[in-house]
Design a binder for these strands. Structure first.
Lengths: 202, 202
DNA sequence: CGTGAGTTTGACCAGATGGTCAAATCAAGA
DNA sequence: TCTTGATTTGACCATCTGGTCAAACTCACG
């Protein structure tokens, strides 16, 4: 195991390569379906060498998830209580949809974990995520109280945004099987935009 | 392997027990994460005995998926071109949501498969599912042409229904982590109902 | 009851998989 | 250049896992 001094050039490069490879493999096969050999091969390292940088498969997975959680929640963080309500929400949705488009592996990584009961991130859900959502739904509720947007169950409003945007990354195969050559996101963006404009208009 | 005559009493009982156990295990851990021993134990059989009824793990999975596909698509099948457009769509949505509530294991079984690229049901998606969706979106399009419901991209309308309803089964842990004790479906039903009333009203 | 088909199982196997270790190789600063 | 810590690897191990098989047991029916 590398000592915990300042990471060397090689350590930086290899750790990054491992996490990148792990993202590919874990998002495509889930934790149990991924093998250390596969990750090592994809990172261009031998298995013992990979295990020199991370003590176990579990450790790689954990590092990956916790490293990406911030990225994943960033769009919601940006929701600003002082902005225009409709614009704030719609641009949150656009950011979420863009993440599904540009970071589908990350979306599927979390989806895999969640579908199987989130054994490894249950804590983060009940703490960080819950806190963030509570903070932001308070803003939504205030906007509703002020009559700026339609009154709706704020938690379910958030769930609906997650569901509609992440669906395109998580169930990509299904979407494409039905749409054929059409780009999913070309149609999704205006559709979702229209949906929320109608829904949120008081 | 049992001969393919009329199945005996014991064959019926054991096959059913195996599929029930397999549904539990596959939906909770995915194909790769499930073990034959686990399924056998949960079905109350020894592993060799289980493999007397199904030739392989793969075969159990396939039997399960193809057996459930009809159930899974039934709500959409019922969408009736001759009914009242708004009522037809809303009751389709209610049926879908009810399935998420009552058959969450089935939902997660498919979710697991889809998130990982649907290696085992890709064909069914491109054939059966695609055909059914095409048939039903034709009805939706006609209703739009007649001005009975708002004009929207019909495929994305269907995707949105799947996303919003299945989200509650597939990502149950996350939803519950945020809602706490509140029953997810109590809030989801009126929310989704309101959403589609607003969205579909021309 | 006898019998043959249907059912069940303990013992076993081969390959996959996560992980270890000592030895070899490499890199960078003194 | 030399030394020392960082890096890499081949060989290896224990366990898990899907699957096999022959022998034993059970059941239904004549």
């Amino acid at each position: 195991m590398p000592k915990d001094r300042a990471p060397t050039r090689i350590q930086k490069k290899n750790r990054a390569a491992i996490l990148e490879a792990a993202l590919n493999v874990f998002s495509a096969h889930g934790f149990r379906g991924a093998t250390v050999d596969q990750i090592a091969a994809e990172a261009g390292l031998s298995k013992p060498n990979l295990l020199y940088y991370f003590p176990s498969k579990e450790a790689i997975h954990t590092a990956l998830l916790s490293g990406l959680l911030d990225t994943w929640l960033a769009p919601l963080h940006e929701l600003d209580a002082d902005g225009d309500p409709m614009e704030e929400i719609l641009s949150y949705i656009r950011r979420k949809l863009q993440m599904s488009r540009e970071l589908p592996r990350e979306s599927r990584l979390f989806a895999n974990e969640l579908v199987q009961g989130a054994p490894r991130i249950h804590e983060a859900l009940s703490n960080d995520l819950k806190a963030l959502v509570d903070e932001k739904t308070a803003i939504l509720t205030q906007w509703m109280d002020e009559g700026k947007i339609a009154r709706l169950h704020p938690y379910h409003l958030v769930f609906s945004i997650w569901a509609l945007t992440q669906h395109y990354a998580d169930f990509d195969v299904q979407v494409r099987a039905i749409l054929g050559d059409e780009d999913p996101f070309d149609g999704a963006e205006p559709f979702i935009d229209t949906l929320y404009r109608k829904l949120l208009t008081p």
